[in-house]
């Protein structure tokens, strides 16, 4: 079995008094693309937030390359090599696209070796991003924001990318473009964990699937197996 880039071991996470995640366990191997599928409110974003340290994990363990990062601050997780593109893209509206990139490039600049040839690698996924570097975040379209968010996360030289609903709100033809981008990222040896509501999109990109409902993992396995599981299909589709 390939080594794990990221591993969640029976984590429980609360938002205020409400328990959102219940004993969630999940594993992303090196170079693997994993989709976490579920309906709205199932716990996908909470899982991603728990991995990034944006929400504290009440119990359980989050490990990155066998290192326990459960209590590590968010910024240290990012610098370890966990890239993150949130559902709302998190583009800084008053900063230019170039300034959005500068933050990550300055922080990653300490790792000079990793940065060698990085720009070519980063922008090879979405080369069109170079065309709107001077534009302010506020003036980007939804699709452009998603491209910038993913490219910006790539510029941190990550070992794993966490993409929260990367295909949401995109036209079908653009979804295909983004799926190709995820494949290209995976081909670079970067692991990918995608939170996705639409099973069809998930099956096009994932090596393995996890299905989550009401904060619990209800399925894990190969994408083709999920279609054979009627209970899971009914739950995911509502």
């Amino acid at each position: 079995m390939p080594a794990a880039t990221l591993e969640l071991d029976r984590i429980n996470t609360f938002r205020g008094p409400a328990q959102i995640l219940r004993e969630v366990s999940l594993r992303v191997a090196d170079g693997e693309a994993i989709c976490l599928v579920g309906r709205n409110g199932a716990g996908k974003t909470t899982t991603i937030d728990s991995i990034m340290g944006l929400l504290p994990v009440r119990s359980g363990r989050v490990a990155f390359r066998d290192r326990d990062i459960t209590r590590l601050p968010t910024h240290e997780r990012a610098l370890l090599g966990i890239g993150y593109a949130p559902e709302d893209c998190g583009i800084f509206p008053d900063l230019s696209v170039e300034e959005n990139f500068q933050i990550t490039s300055w922080l990653a600049s300490a790792r000079a070796t990793a940065r060698r040839g990085l720009d070519e690698r980063v922008f090879s996924v979405f080369p069109e991003v170079k065309d709107f570097m001077t534009r302010r975040g506020l003036h980007l379209s939804g699709g452009q924001k998603k491209m910038v968010a993913i490219t910006r996360a790539m510029s941190l030289v990550p070992s794993i990318l966490l993409l929260d609903e990367p295909f949401e709100g995109l036209a079908p033809v653009v979804v295909t473009r983004f799926i190709e981008a995820v494949r290209a990222i995976k081909a670079m040896g970067i692991s990918v964990l995608i939170a996705e509501s639409h099973l069809a999109n998930a099956t096009r990109v994932a090596d393995r699937l996890y299905a989550i409902d009401r904060g619990e993992i209800i399925f894990q396995g190969h994408p083709r197996d999920v279609f054979a599981n009627e209970d899971v299909m009914r739950t995911i589709r509502g």
């Binding site: 968010t74 800084f92 933050i103």
Partner: peptide
Amino acid sequence: VVLRATSQNMRMAAALGV
């Protein structure tokens, strides 16, 4: 730039390593 980024979205700044 880091200051302005943090003022606009503190969570995202942290997630980018700030």
